[in-house]
Amino acid sequence: MRILVCVKRVPITGGRMVLTADEQAIETKHLGFTISPHEECGVEEAVRIVEAGGGEVVVLTLGPEEAAEQIRDCMAIGADRGIHLVSSEEWDPQATAAAIADAIRAEDPFDLIVFGNESADAGGYQVGIRVAYALGLPVVTGLKGLTVDAGRARCEQEVPGGRDVYDVALPAVVSVKEGLNLPRYPSVPAKLRAKSKPLDARLVERPVSKLEKLRLVVPEGSHKQAEILGEGPAAAPRVVEVMQQLGVA
């Protein structure tokens, strides 16, 4: 099995959203970076499939030079090599999908192409689907369960009240959700090995955005003044009163 996992570098936002002065991005001076939680599960799943049945896991990202850090993180989980489309600008979903599809066409065919269901930051819900159309492949989204066997994938998609099941022939595109598995923590030797795995980086030029970001805004009203019901266990009677007022106790 040859599996490609597409990931995106995003800041670890913590408790408060603080923007840069030009309102174009989150102020990341004091923040670390990661990939979207859905994508962490995508990398883990791909590595497990290849560990069980052999093959190769390739990780692809479109992002700034610093996103090489996230590719190395994925390699420490077990990915074999990386493709880095380098651009410091933010791309809209259509342009992102087109660039990823171009990069995939330049490779030997993959059996499975994995995305997160939506990116943690922009949340466009569409890049994986667009890539599938560009490549003429079937696509199933929102997976909480995936079993690959004999050239087919059984896909369990999370829906209200349970899971819908799909059976698709490979090659296919899937997007996954956190909860598909519990990603491993990379070992120190695995982190060291990751440093010497092949990483192909190339500059890409952003086309005109059809969904053009103008500015970011921190929503109002997220800072409430909480009523303090008390300190320690002595607050319990007041808590129960409030529960009764709310009609839940």
Partner: peptide, 10 residues
Amino acid sequence: GTLLEEARLH
């Protein structure tokens, strides 16, 4: 929803 984006659709 913890951050909003103002955007133009071309």
